[in-house]
Amino acid sequence: MLNKIFNKRGQASESMTWIAATLIIIVLLGISIYAASLLSKLKIIDYETEERTQDIIMEESLFSYFSIKDSDVQSKIFKSLEKMNQEEKFYEDFNSKFQQIKFNLEKNEK
C-alpha cells in the first residue's frame, strides 16, 4: 500500500518537472516574440543621425556666402548660418566645411 503511494508521488513530481520545463520554454518564446515586435517598431532610418559626409544645402549657402561682394550682406548671412549651426540644422560639420571651401576657393584663385 505504502509502495503504491510513494510511486504515485514519484510520478507526480516527474510530470511537474515536464510541465515546469514546458512553461519555461513557452515564457522564453513569448519574451522573444515580444522583443522581436519591439525591435520591428524601431525600423526607422533617420537621415539626420546617420553619419553623413555631405550636406548639399549647407554647401549651397557657403558657396553663395563666398560669392557675395557686399560685406554687410556677407556678415548677415554668416550670422544666420552660425545660428542654424547652433540649432543643429546641418547634417555635416559646418566649421570644417567652411574652412575646406575657403581653402579650395583661395587655391583656385592662385
Partner: peptide, 23 residues
Amino acid sequence: IIAGAVVAMVSLFYGSPYDVRVT
C-alpha cells in the same frame, strides 16, 4: 511550438517595413 515561435519572430521583424520617408 518552437518552430512556430521562430517563424512568428522572423515575420514580425521582417514583416514591418523600414520607414524611409524622412530620407
